[in-house]
Design a binder for these strands. Structure first.
Lengths: 129, 129
DNA sequence: ATAATGTGTAACTATACGGTTTCGCATTTA
DNA sequence: TAAATGCGAAACCGTATAGTTACACATTAT
């Protein structure tokens, strides 16, 4: 097993999703496999540019390639998106839960911070002396 | 209303999430507000580096800043993550649904592609003549 | 066999990005 | 008022990235 696979944590997926063209490529592939040429046809950039995006998506394991004659057919592999999804999972409560109570929570943290920062400052001051 | 707000579509959020440090900053803020200094303290990079990350996160509306004396308190704003979540939503079926049927679907698309590509090639060939 | 087609790679350019150090400004403390 | 503190901005550097054009290679068509 290669190290990149073993230590996979979704970082590559996050990086891959940063580019709007690559997100659009994935959106295209949601409907089914497409050849590299067909994908390139859907964008205003040159074919080699798409080729590079596809290489990045391949390395992030977000797409899979299969050769058919001289065509390279690309299909979606949603697995790495699971990592993105599970990262997002930890934030879902922030907008699905009661917003008022969240606000209260943040406010109280804000107050804690105020006194904590003061205490920390004093502690550092003592240390320095 | 500024244009950036009006045309907001989550692109900035995706770009912001590409960096592991920024994701970690958001993870920190999940527990409550923190000052810029406290955030910087949690990372092995310089404070200005964190300052730049925070600016990017602010521009992506993923964090909010509030001044308290000479402290700048940062808190999480999960709203832009909704856009990320809803983008991901369209992919969720790909791993929650029956994988066998998905496979069949992809296979059939693959077959369609094979003949479609052939037809398209011929069409283009005719056009060129 | 030769030509045409599909696609990836190479080489190059411009720009964005993450990092650093230095500086400046506002606020708080002494 | 003067010193210390918190933090962002500026200037700079090295590298990554998105794009281009030119090329190479394999496969299909003639």
């Amino acid at each position: 097993m290669r190290n990149r696979l073993a230590t996979y944590n979704g970082a590559a997926a996050f990086a891959a999703l940063a580019d709007p063209t690559r997100r659009a490529v994935l959106d295209l592939l949601r409907a089914g496999s497409l050849s590299a040429g067909q994908i390139a046809h859907a964008f205003p950039v040159s074919r080699p540019a798409i080729s590079k995006h596809l290489r990045l998506l391949r390395r992030a394991r977000l797409v899979e390639q299969r050769r058919l004659g001289r065509l390279r057919l690309y299909s979606l592999n949603p697995d790495p998106l699971k990592a993105v999804d599970s990262w997002l999972e930890r934030y879902r409560s922030f907008w699905s839960a009661n917003l008022a109570s969240l606000k209260r929570f943040v406010e109280s943290e804000y107050q804690n911070e105020k006194t904590a920062a003061r205490a920390r400052r004093k502690a550092r001051a003592r240390k320095r002396i």
